[in-house]
Write a protein that binds this DNA or RNA. Structure first.
Length: 913
RNA sequence: GGGCGAUUAGCUCAGUGGUAGAGCACUGCCUUCACACGGCAGGGGUCGCAAGUUCGAACCUUGCAUCGCCCA
């Protein structure tokens, strides 16, 4: 006997272990079947499961379980990525916490990297175990890591990265360049644009007066509040506004807009920079915005991306004033910029105070404006990022983007929903060179060697580089490593064994679907497209399904710092993995984000309980597992009806999952199981199961058992645990004999809806609903059994009533069903279909209430009929609307009018009471 | 500043030209032999605003308002 409820805590771990040990997650290997593959978006090896992962992996699991049941040869390829900065940070913090005075520097590169590997093997990848708790059916035997296998120096993940780097270099698609990069002074590495968070923070605009050189003066117009020039002022300075005054040490000029009449006379003149005493030119450049601030801007090419471009146009040599830790430079650079010794070696923020104080002391600080400014922060370090001039390696993303754009335009890769194409194009069309070098130790070391004379040799190995350079040339390998996303970009094919020609690559690449959130389109999707096309000649995936973000109840992004993050595993503990999964499925289609509330997860847990209890009911009534049921030989209308409903549910769910409409699939299953199977079918068959007709009883037991088993299959992709548990519990020994539920075939029914049975059952349902509604409205005590009469119903209806007498009596709480020619006295009646149903209850109820109810309904019909008549009276409607719409409206009038007449008669019969 | 999107019941959201829907919450009744993590019944929306197209608009077009996200 089944317990009253499913116990997820007990069953989930047991079932998962059984699946895994039986090798259920591996591809079937059936080469005659269609291959279906998904590569997991590799979570950081440092990561812990958050709600985004829970959603992302639930949807992938729904797809792979579905396709597996559909008979495809399915691979869900799992793994983690090495997360350069994040992992290095974790290990450095760990060393600091140990207090042994060890640091990255004291350990040295090799020992430190050893230490990171040791960390990875011990505590990295905790998220993998967490994915298992969700029920993720990845082929864990193939678990991959973007850094490959440390114990196998020849592993393909490493070779793939080297090969890609070398070949792109040879093609000129990777090159070395000195440009401004986003420099993280905390980690002392370059990071990509995408790793920079632009945050709005409270800041200031310092309005600085730069004295004009050579005794130049000009008339500056002064405006009143309405913007009218009221007077002019003779000035011997020009005002620039900046949020970063310390960078004035590296200014190479002041720019004004070429059409800004205020400064027209100053272009070509010079200012004398305070503090450093440098003469720099006033230039004309479109970049200066006359409507902002004073309209004049200082130009610091070495420390601002826009200024860099302006400086380049004006032919200025950038002056670097910061070192790698964002302190003011000393030595040669400082001499070149004329920086006084008091400023040298100062932290950037201390230098700022000093600069401002110096301007103030000299009477050159015009104004400090408080306002919100956009400031760049490192997404890992949370320190202010510095634009900084360095030598770095770049990928020519612009060139590589072209075939990646074309592939989507040509439909080789499809975004679902399609609207995300725009985001993809938008970014691809404006793509910047991709800085791929990082000044870190944890990552793929760049396969480039420098000779003493600065010549660079890029090669697969040191030997190869040496061979290129010739004997006797001293080579030193580049210290830097590659951006983690460089190796992630190869994920769809590197995990399949590339660059080796493996059977997996042959079978499973290109992958079928990538499931991810939109915030990673730039980081990852675009780069996989570029690399996949370049190195395999094929797109890495046919479909990219972009799902929502998971937000908290208030619609806020969840984050640790906000403290609003919910731990998916806590929800799994409380409600079971199935509940969380089905919740995710139900919500997956809804807009761009999902608001998570415990209450909603609880309701899906209740749904699992409902299913469990339906199975419990089946067990108590000996509805076993009959295997197949032959629809043609099923005779009872209620059984023919439920089989039709089952087939309809299957068709809807199948289509919806195949089209990534997870929410529609979930809704169809929810509706069928709760509101059709449980609310109606199980109630309707109770009289049959308890009745004396052995033939009907056996048929009903078979159909009920069959429908429940089929339901388990349909629900399995969403709720794998409770369904798998019931599969065995409903027929002990079944797993051994027939295999796990997860390996059963997805239903494909040979069932045609029986419209006769459907009409008949629908009539029964309508009659019961109508009687219940009337009873409830009129306050008939729930327990009281009442007599009813079907008035002049005709032979068909009478037959139905007789056939379903037991059901009607039970579900509508009836004492007697009579068939009469006239409306009985003392009755309250209503209309079901075309039949007048009289409830002989006048003595039990408030007749005035009954009259009111009828009046209300008649009034509503009057209104509807009038509106429809008006519509049909409109010549334009009748002539222009489609025939079937016009016809539909005509039929409505007939139906409503008939109903109205009967209700009026019923109302009349209540007059005298 | 550029782009994307949202606005429908108290809440979360489906619905994309033909009589406004679901889940949750709410109200009343029911401890009926699968399930109170339940059953039955019910209340609740001029579909953000305005104009237009159309026989007909929640849905298409334009404008406005509010909110959100991405990019600069």
């Amino acid at each position: 006997m089944l317990d009253q409820r499913f116990d997820p805590a007990e069953a989930e771990a047991r079932l998962y272990k059984a699946w895994e040990e039986a090798g259920c997650f591996k591809p079937s290997g059936d080469t005659s079947a269609q291959a279906y593959s998904i590569v997991i978006p590799p979570p950081n090896v440092t990561g812990v499961l958050h709600m985004g992962h829970a959603l992302n992996n639930t949807l992938q699991d729904v797809l792979v379980r579905f396709e597996r049941m559909r008979g495809k040869n399915v691979l869900w390829q799992p793994g983690t990525d090495h997360a350069g900065i994040a992992t290095q940070m974790v290990v450095e913090r760990q060393m600091a916490a140990e207090g042994k005075n060890e640091s990255r520097a004291s350990l040295g590169r090799d020992a430190f990297v050893d230490r990171v590997w040791a960390w990875k093997e011990e505590s990295g990848g905790a998220i993998v175990g967490q994915l298992k708790r969700l029920g993720a059916s990845c082929d864990w035997s193939r678990e991959a890591f973007t850094m490959g296998d440390r114990n196998d120096p020849d592993n393909n993940m490493m070779r793939a990265v080297t090969k890609v780097f070398v070949e792109l270099f040879d093609k000129g698609l990777i090159y070395r360049d000195k440009r401004l990069v986003n420099w993280d002074p905390h980690f002392q590495t370059a990071i990509s644009d995408l790793e920079v968070d632009q945050r709005e923070v409270a800041g200031h605009y310092w309005h600085l007066r730069y004295p004009l050189a050579d005794g130049v003066t000009y008339l500056h117009p002064i405006k009143d509040e309405d913007g009218n020039v009221v007077e002019s002022e003779m000035r011997d300075y020009i005002v620039v506004a900046t949020s970063r005054p310390e960078t004035m040490l590296g200014d190479t000029g002041v720019a004004v807009h070429p059409e800004d009449s205020r400064y027209a006379g100053l272009v070509g003149k010079f200012v004398e920079l305070p503090i450093v005493g440098r003469r720099v030119p006033i230039i004309a450049d479109d970049y200066a915005d006359p409507t902002k601030g004073s309209g004049a801007v200082k130009i610091t090419p070495a420390h601002d991306f826009n200024d860099f471009e302006v400086g380049k146009r004006a032919g200025h040599t950038p002056l670097n004033i910061l070192d790698a830790t964002a302190h003011i430079v000393d030595g040669e650079d400082a001499d070149a910029a004329g920086i006084p010794s008091a400023y040298r070696g100062q932290d950037r923020f201390d230098a700022r105070k000093k600069v401002v104080a110096a301007f103030e002391a000299a009477g050159l600080l015009q104004e400090i404006e408080n306002l919100k400014i956009e400031q760049p922060f490192g997404d890992r370090s949370n320190v202010v990022i510095e634009p900084w001039m360095t030598d770095q390696w770049y990928v020519d993303a612009k060139t590589m983007a072209q075939p990646a754009i074309a592939a989507v335009k040509e439909g080789k890769t499809r975004f679902v929903p399609e609207t995300w194409e725009k985001t993809y194009y938008n970014w691809m069309d404006n793509i910047q060179p991709w800085c791929i070098s990082r000044q870190l130790w944890w990552g793929h070391r760049i396969p480039a060697w420098f000779a003493d004379d600065g010549t660079i040799y890029v090669a697969h190995s040191e030997e190869e580089a040496q061979a290129q350079a010739g004997k006797g040339v001293t080579l030193k390998q580049d210290d830097d490593v590659l951006d983690t996303w460089f190796s992630s970009a190869l994920w769809p094919f590197s995990t399949m064994g590339w660059p080796d020609k493996t059977p997996e690559l042959e079978t499973f690449y290109p992958t079928a679907t990538l499931v991810t959130a939109f915030d990673i389109i730039f980081f990852w999707v675009a780069r996989m497209m570029m690399m996949g096309i370049e190195f395999t000649g094929e797109v890495p995936f046919k479909d990219v399904y972009i799902h929502a973000l998971v937000l908290d109840e208030k619609g806020q992004k969840m984050s640790k710092s906000k403290g609003n993050a919910m731990d998916p595993l806590e929800l799994v503990d409380e409600y079971g993995a199935d509940a969380l999964r089905f919740f995710m499925g139900r919500m997956a289609g809804q807009g761009r984000n999902i608001r998570l509330s415990k209450q909603a997860v609880e309701s899906t847990r209740n749904f699992a309980t409902k299913l469990w209890n339906a199975a419990r009911f089946a067990e108590m009534n000996e509805c076993g597992a009959p295997g197949e049921v032959d629809f043609a030989s099923v005779t009872s209308p209620v059984n023919r009806w439920i089989l039709g409903e089952l087939a309809a549910c299957e068709a809807e769910a199948t289509k919806a999952i195949a089209e990534y409409r997870f929410n529609d699939a979930a809704a169809a299953l929810y509706r069928f199981i709760w509101h059709i199977l449980c609310d109606w079918y199980l109630e309707l068959i109770k009289p049959l199961l308890m009745g004396m007709d052995d033939g009907a009883k056996q048929e009903t037991r078979d159909v009920c058992g069959y429908v429940i088993d089929e339901t388990l299959k349909l629900l399995h992709p969403f709720m794998p645990f409770v369904t798998e548990e019931l599969w065995e519990r409903r027929a002990p020994g079944r797993v051994e004999a027939q295999g796990f539920l997860m390996h059963q075939s997805w239903p494909d029914y040979d069932i045609k809806r029986d419209s006769g049975a459907d009409t008949e059952i629908q009539w029964v349902l309508d009659l019961i609903s109508e009687i219940r509604s009337l009873r409830s409205d009129l306050g008939v005590p729930a327990g009281s059994k009442i007599p009813i009469s079907l008035v002049s119903a005709g032979p068909v209806i009478e037959d139905r009533a007789i056939r379903h007498e037991d059901i009607l009596k039970r579900l509508a709480r009836l004492e007697l069903i009579a068939v009469t020619d006239t409306l009985p006295t003392g009755a309250v009646s209503t209309v079901v279909g075309e039949t007048v149903v009289a409830l002989v209850i006048a003595d039990q109820i408030d007749v005035a209430e009954a009259r009111k109810r009828l009046d209300k309904e008649v009034a509503q019909l009057d209104k509807d009929i009038m509106a429809t008549e008006k519509k049909l009276g409109n010549e334009a409607f009748v002539s222009k609307a489609p025939v079937e719409i016009v016809e539909e409206n005509r039929e409505r009038i007939v139906e409503w009018s008939g109903r109205r007449e009967k209700l009026k008669a019923a109302r009349k019969s209540l007059e005298g009471l």
